[in-house]
Every structure is written in C-alpha cells, then in structure tokens.
Amino acid sequence: MSGSHQVKVVIVDRHALFAECFGAVLELRHYRFEALPVLTGPGHAERMVQRILAARPDVVVINADLGPRCHAPTIVEALARAGVPVVAVTESPDEALWGECLAHGARTAVPKTDPLTALVSAVRRAVNGEPLLPHAERARLISRYRRQEAATRQGRERLGTLTPTEGEVLRHLMAGHTVREIATRRFVSEATVRAQVKSILAKLDLSSQIAAVAVAHVGNWEPEALPLAG
C-alpha cells in the first residue's frame, strides 16, 4: 500500500453506535472509514455488495450476523471474490458462525468482546496481506461450521418425512403447548398426542420434545399459523 494512500475501511454493522465508535478509533490511527446501513428486502445481499464495492474499500469490517433478512456470509463471499479483504466481527459465541464466515472468504473473525485494538490490528494486517489466523485454527473453525451445516441439513431432511398431522403437532410444541393442551385443541386423546410425539421423535432420531423444537428452529422450519383456541 502506497504511503500516500489513506486506507479506507467500510463498516457494515446493525449497531450504529459500534460502527461510529470503531470508525472514530480508525480515524485516530489515520484511516478513513464509511459506515453503511444494513439493507433489508428483496435482493438485499446483492444490493449491499454493490453499495460496499461502490465505496471502494481497502478492507471491509462486517458483522457476521446482520439479521434474518441479510445473510452476511453471502456478502462476504461476493466481496472475497472481488478481491476485497474482509474481517468479520461477531457478538455470538457460536464458533460455527465464525467458521461460516471463514468458509465464505473472511480473513478472520474477531469477537466484539475483544479490545478494539485487536480489531484495528486485524484491519491493518488484512490490508497488508498478512496472515490473520493460524492455519490449524482456521481449519478447526471451518470444520465446526461444516459439521453443524451437515447436521442442520440432515434435520431438514428428517423434518420433511413428517406427516401433515405430525407437522401440526410439532407446530404446537414450537408454540409452547403441552400434550394436554394439544389434545384439547385437536379434540383427540392425550394418548393419541403422545403417540404422535413419539413418532415425531423417532423420525427425527431425537429423545426429547425440546430437542425436536430446537431442530425445527435451527432448520428454519416454518410453522404454519395455528387455529385460535375456541
């Protein structure tokens, strides 16, 4: 990087306070910065990539979780393909999310619990093309993501084997209804509901209702609207 060139950092984060505070820290170290708001709606990821590239960044700092309507790893992948170094920041302790960003091309993932100096150091090293993560650690985090991705995919496939009736029972469980409440709402016996729950658990290869609900949530299984209780 030429000495006459002032490095520009584009920050993409849901939290304006973090973006502005980190930007102020960067300016004290003679970097330029631009904070971009997170876009939502149709084509949000593509539009975010276009806006980021239009800002002509030397490096991008992006929150690994931009919310359900804006998939950060998709943006990271497009930026990496365009040759832009990306540093992911995360407030989540979920290492699989860190690994997902790395698998899509991020140079490193920095927890927001780390000092700001650690993030500044990551930006500097990314701009200079220096390694940011030991190879073994990078491989470990990506492997963690791959394993979770495979488990989620398997969970979705198993959810697809549920009958319409079992799907309705699972939707009730996701809504927090007990077996007795489900039986009352569906005008069947509690024994019938228990048998249906047992079948759901068998098909999902799980041992508890809580685990079944968790698989449905992790797999982004969309429950249909349930009828109001009479």
Rank of each mutant, 00 (worst) to 15 (best):
S4K: 10
H5M: 11
H5N: 06
Q6L: 11
V7P: 01
K8D: 02
K8W: 09
K8T: 09
V9I: 06
V10K: 01
D13M: 04
A16P: 05
A16K: 14
F22N: 01
G23E: 07
A24Y: 10
V25K: 03
V25P: 00
E27N: 13
E27K: 09
L28Q: 13
L28N: 12
E34G: 01
A35I: 03
L39K: 09
T40A: 12
G43I: 05
H44Y: 01
H44S: 00
E46H: 05
M48K: 03
Q50W: 00
Q50D: 10
R51M: 00
R51I: 00
I52C: 00
A55K: 01
A55R: 03
R56A: 11
R56E: 15
D58E: 13
D58K: 05
D58T: 09
V59G: 10
V60N: 01
V61E: 00
V61K: 02
A64Q: 05
P68I: 04
P68W: 07
R69E: 13
H71S: 11
H71V: 13
P73V: 01
V76T: 14
L79Q: 05
L79I: 14
A80G: 09
A80W: 08
A82K: 08
G83D: 06
G83W: 08
P85Q: 13
V89T: 14
P93E: 11
P93W: 12
D94S: 05
D94L: 08
E95F: 03
W98R: 10
W98D: 05
A103P: 11
G105S: 10
A106Y: 01
A109G: 13
K112D: 07
T113R: 11
D114H: 09
D114M: 15
T117S: 15
V120P: 06
V120N: 08
A122K: 12
R124K: 10
A126E: 12
N128E: 13
L133M: 15
P134L: 06
P134K: 11
A136L: 05
I142V: 15
R146W: 05
E149K: 07
E149A: 10
A151I: 00
R153Y: 03
Q154M: 06
T161V: 02
T161L: 04
L162S: 02
T163G: 14
T163D: 14
T165P: 03
G167K: 04
L170I: 02
H172Q: 12
M174G: 08
M174T: 13
A175P: 04
G176V: 12
G176F: 06
R180D: 15
E181M: 04
A183C: 11
R185D: 04
V188T: 05
A191C: 01
A191K: 09
I200F: 01
A202E: 08
D205C: 08
S208H: 01
Q209C: 13
I210M: 14
A211Y: 06
V213Q: 02
V215I: 15
A216T: 03
G219Q: 04
P223C: 09
E224T: 14
E224I: 11
P227G: 08
L228S: 14
G230A: 14
G230R: 09
